[in-house]
Simulated assay, not measured.
Amino acid sequence: MDAPHNELMSALATLLEAGKYSDLTIVCGERRWAVHRAVICSRSGFFDGACSNRFREAETGIIDLSEDEEDAVEHMIKYFYHLDYLVKSRPSSPRARGARSPSPRRPRKLNLALVEDPLLAQAANTTIPSHAIPLTPPDEAASRFESLSLNEKTPMTPHEMEEEADDYFSLAMPEQEVDSAVPHLILHAKMYAIAEKYGIKGLKSLARSKFSTQVEQHWSSAEFPETIQDVYETTVDSDRGLRDIVVQTFRAHPELARRKDVEAVVKETPGVAWDLFRVGWGMPVTA
């Protein structure tokens, strides 16, 4: 399955990088992305509606998202073509420069069963049930997270690396080198919010999974208080996807209540204050 999957992902990444066959432009501030309706509209209810009806966007082929943050829009677009975000552009192939191909990194493997995305499901040749990633954890009383590992690395032998160098170097995307010691809590919260806004189900599931893993690792970071506020200000009360993770973090780490920066955010954010009040009295957070 690796070779067809790598070929599909490489082709999608090339479409975005080269802009070839583009028939739609997304604008955000000073930035522009040449994209493809077949890729974008099949994955987002918002973009499908904008391009299918007699709106100005359908006639001009330009969709202006300048009210959103540029970085969030960029990561959203990268998700459409990479089925992931926080990804870097692929380097040009050494062959194109006349150099000898070095041994490639093993392509990053996603656990396809964890992300609800139609294109990803097709690539995996499997049917993903709608309950694959519930938005609300089934056990609110749990004091720890069920960590969702999206990237399981399998070491390659030198023979395997040499064998794959000729066939797959131009196809395999390089493994994203994201420093796990650096928190990306706010980014994942923003990606969750933008996925909800534009109806991108797979991106929303992926952002929640990344957020859960990051919070488990970086709940004590200086970024966590601002993240709490961002989560509660960018989601509605009925959307418990990230809010439940925040509440579970307080359950698992009661020492958070003694942090002054956390106290300040809780006082300024009625939603989280109300949730923690109910938790303190042993009441369910959700109806």
Rank of each mutant, 00 (worst) to 15 (best):
A3Q: 14
N6S: 09
G19F: 09
R31V: 03
W33Y: 15
A34H: 12
G49S: 11
C51Q: 09
R54I: 03
R54Q: 09
I62M: 09
L65V: 11
E69I: 12
E74I: 02
M76C: 05
I77M: 01
Y79K: 07
F80T: 01
L83P: 00
D84P: 01
D84K: 02
P91C: 03
P94I: 06
G98Q: 07
A99L: 12
R100F: 11
P102T: 10
P107D: 01
L110A: 02
E116H: 09
D117K: 00
T126G: 03
I128K: 09
H131P: 00
A141D: 08
A141S: 14
A141H: 13
L148W: 05
S149M: 11
N151G: 04
N151M: 07
K153E: 02
T154S: 05
E163K: 14
A165T: 15
D166E: 13
F169V: 09
P174E: 03
D179P: 10
S180W: 01
V182L: 04
V182R: 10
I186E: 07
A189N: 06
K197G: 04
Y198P: 08
G202A: 06
R208I: 10
R208E: 03
S209L: 13
S209N: 12
T213L: 12
V215I: 15
E216S: 15
Q217I: 11
H218A: 11
H218E: 10
S220G: 04
A222H: 07
Q229N: 10
V231N: 07
V231F: 03
T235G: 05
D237C: 12
S238R: 14
S238N: 08
G241N: 08
A257H: 06
A264H: 04
V266P: 04
V266N: 06
E268M: 07
G280I: 03
